[in-house]
Computed example of a mutant assay.
Amino acid sequence: MEEKESKQTLYLVMGGRVTDPRSVTFSDPESLHVAGVFSTYEDAESAWRANAQRTVDDAEMKYVIVHLHKLLEPDA
């Protein structure tokens, strides 16, 4: 009997300076800080929180969590 493989989840945490604090349009995409790729949302959120707290006094800095698995398999 064949075991069904569970879907892998991947989360990217990245951040940088944005053109408007209400958007996610980065002013210099080439200089984005990549905090890492994580296999659980909890780990990604911890990394996001740590980086967001570190830059909390700079309104033009924003960190986000990107669901890579949704980009890699959009129909899943």
Rank of each mutant, 00 (worst) to 15 (best):
M1K: 11
E2F: 04
K4M: 11
K4T: 13
E5P: 01
K7I: 13
K7D: 11
K7S: 12
K7N: 11
K7C: 03
L12E: 10
V13E: 02
M14G: 00
G15D: 06
G16P: 09
T19G: 10
T19F: 02
P21F: 05
P21M: 09
P21D: 06
R22T: 14
F26C: 07
F26T: 06
S27Q: 14
S27D: 14
S27M: 09
S27I: 12
D28T: 14
P29M: 10
P29V: 06
H33M: 07
V34Q: 08
A35D: 04
A35I: 07
A35P: 01
G36R: 05
F38M: 02
T40D: 03
T40H: 04
Y41L: 11
Y41D: 01
E42S: 10
E45W: 03
E45R: 08
E45Y: 09
S46W: 00
S46H: 07
A47L: 06
R49S: 09
A50N: 13
A50V: 11
A50G: 04
A52M: 09
R54Y: 12
R54K: 15
T55Y: 13
D57P: 00
D57Q: 15
D58G: 02
D58V: 07
A59P: 04
E60V: 00
E60W: 07
E60P: 00
M61E: 08
K62N: 03
K62L: 10
K62E: 01
K62H: 07
Y63L: 06
Y63D: 02
V64D: 02
V66G: 00
H67A: 09
L68G: 02
K70G: 11
L71H: 11
L72Y: 10
L72E: 13
E73I: 01
P74W: 05
D75I: 06
A76S: 15
A76N: 14
